[in-house]
Structure formats: structure tokens, C-alpha cells
């Protein structure tokens, strides 16, 4: 190919084959690890399947059961409650941190520190907080007692579990979210702020009038990613509360897992997974449209 003559080069070269070669690894991975399991999961949702004996087709039985299952509806409610607390706090905090990283400091190590919780695995973070918040021995409750408050059963009281789990995950993910937003802030030209300062705008006005509007597409993307991730909360629940007390932290993913691997009802678990898939598609679509994620005001 290096020997191509100038005349030949002028003709538009057909690079389909090269393109296929480059796309193939991702495409194969996508088909084998994403599309195929999804299709199979949808198929299994119409069967009775315990994974060890062949699936039996049972039509819409699993879906009928799902609609009538109060634990399913409760788990959906609990999940939404978690997502609302988790996303609202996380996004607000991340935005604040990102703006401070942008406007107040240029130090790499300081920016790096913000990301460190994200380097801790979910399970480890959950375990550490489980110990910190332990009712009897946790240092968190010792601190509460020292400042004269009553001890709180953070992970054993039905009113506290979901806010606590949401906060644990905010702690872990806020740095990463801040970094994404920070990257978005970098795309806003410094000249706009200079113009703002010349016009005598305060930092707060500039944040509201320049930063937020221009950040919208990035924020929309960040929200879509974090909301989808938030709906799939599992490991923190599995480590800290196992769905309890009673059903107060039985989020959908945990219920699905327990149904499949604890009760061997893979058909029903698949049906609930499909329901989660539908919920996520709808929410993502709405977010995309409402935030006009595909348009930027910078152009």
C-alpha cells in the first residue's frame, strides 16, 4: 500500500475492509457479551428455568406474577428512592467540586485526591462504612455520642438504610462524576469569563449565566450515565444490609439476584431484568430529549 502512485491516491480508496478490521473486535465483543445475553435474557423471561434443567416455555406467566408481586413493586420504589437521593446529592456535589477545581486550583495532586474514593472498590467501600457505622463499635457512632447525640443504627434501621447506602455511593462516585464535569468545563472558552468579568459579573452570576448553560450537554451525558449506574445498585446493598431490614433496602437488582441465585427462579428473575431494561430505556430516552443532550449552545 505504501507503493501507491499519486494517480491512484487521487481516487477515493475503498477502506471498508480496514474499517471492518478496526470495528470487528468491539463488534464481536458487543455481540457476544451484550446482544446475545440480552436476547437470551428476554427469551428466558418467558420460561420457567432453574439453570440446571432445560427451560420450559410458560408464556407471560412471569410477567403476570411480576405485576402481582408486592415485593417487586416495593423494590422498584426503594430503587427509585435510592436513585433520587444518590443522583441529586452526587450531581450537586460533583458540580460544586468541578467548578472549584476549575476556578480555584490548578494543582494536579489536589485534583487527584478528589478521585481517590473512586479507586476503592464498591465492596471495600461498603465494608469500611459498615464498620464505621456499626451500632456497637463503629467510630461513626462514637463520634455521634461524643457530640451528645444518640447512636443511630445506620444500616439496621429501615428509615436510615437507603439514605446511608446512597451516601456511601455518593462518597465513592462523586470524584469521578466531578472529573467528568470538570472535563466539560474545560471546553468552555476562557474568553467568555473574561467578557463576563469585564461586564462586572460576579462568580455566581457567571456560574448561572455562562457555566451552567454551556455545560448542559455534558451534564446531560453525566446524568444519563450516573442514573443508569445508580439504578443498578447492588454490591453496596449485598455487603451492608442484604436487602433488610425487612424489605427496606431490597433494591431491584438485589431482588433479581436473590431470585436467580438464591431461589433458582431464573425465568422470573429474567422477567424482572427485562422490566428494569425497559425502565432504563424509557428514563434514558426522556433524559435525552428533555436535556437536549445532542445539541450544544457553544456552536
Amino acid at each position: 500500500m505504501a507503493t501507491a502512485t499519486p494517480e491512484l491516491r487521487r481516487k477515493p480508496k475503498d477502506d471498508t475492509r480496514l474499517a471492518i478490521l478496526f470495528i470487528a473486535p468491539a463488534l464481536v465483543g458487543f455481540l457476544v457479551f451484550m446482544i446475545w445475553p440480552t436476547l437470551r435474557g428476554i427469551y428466558l423471561s418467558f420460561t420457567k428455568f432453574n439453570l440446571l434443567t432445560p427451560p420450559e416455555f410458560n408464556g407471560f406467566d412471569n410477567y403476570v406474577r411480576m405485576v402481582q408481586d408486592p415485593v417487586f413493586w416495593n423494590s422498584l420504589k426503594v430503587t427509585v428512592y435510592y436513585v433520587v437521593i444518590n443522583i441529586a446529592l452526587q450531581t450537586a456535589l460533583a458540580l460544586g467540586i468541578a467548578v472549584m477545581m476549575q476556578r480555584l486550583t490548578k494543582r494536579t495532586w489536589l485534583r487527584g485526591i478528589v478521585l481517590t474514593p473512586y479507586l476503592v472498590s464498591n465492596v471495600v467501600a461498603a465494608l469500611v462504612f459498615l464498620w464505621i457505622l456499626d451500632y456497637q463499635l463503629g467510630i461513626g457512632n462514637k463520634v455521634l455520642e461524643m457530640i451528645g447525640m444518640d447512636r443511630i443504627a445506620f444500616l439496621a434501621d429501615s428509615n436510615w438504610v437507603i439514605p446511608t447506602i446512597a451516601l456511601i455511593n455518593v462518597w465513592r462516585h462523586v470524584g469521578y462524576t466531578a472529573l467528568l464535569i470538570f472535563a466539560g468545563l474545560q471546553t468552555i472558552p476562557e474568553t467568555l469569563y473574561e467578557a463576563g468579568r469585564t461586564d462586572g459579573a460576579s462568580e455566581i452570576t457567571m456560574f448561572r449565566r455562562i457555566t451552567l448553560p454551556l455545560l448542559r450537554p455534558i451534564l446531560a451525558l453525566v446524568l444519563i450515565i450516573t442514573v443508569v449506574g445508580s439504578f443498578q445498585v447492588f454490591d453496596t446493598v449485598a455487603v451492608t444490609t442484604r436487602g433488610g431490614p425487612v424489605d427496606s433496602s431490597r433494591v431491584l437488582q438485589y431482588y433479581i439476584y436473590d431470585m436467580a441465585f438464591g431461589r433458582f427462579q431464573f425465568g422470573y428473575a429474567s422477567a424482572m431484568s427485562v422490566a428494569l431494561l425497559v425502565v432504563l430505556i424509557v428514563i434514558t430516552f426522556l433524559q435525552y430529549r428533555l436535556t437536549r443532550a445532542e445539541q450544544s449552545d457553544l456552536a
Partner: peptide, 21 residues
């Protein structure tokens, strides 16, 4: 109570006697 022994991650009876609880 349920909360005092740690909910779904309880400290066992052995630890409760050990710690004097």
C-alpha cells in the same frame, strides 16, 4: 434489639458475651 445487634450483619452471641453486651 434488631438494630443493636447490627441488623442483617449481626454480631453473634459469642461476641455479645465477649463484649459484655
Amino acid at each position: 434489639s434488631f438494630a443493636e445487634i447490627g441488623g442483617n450483619n449481626p454480631v453473634g452471641p459469642d461476641k455479645q458475651i465477649q463484649s459484655g453486651l
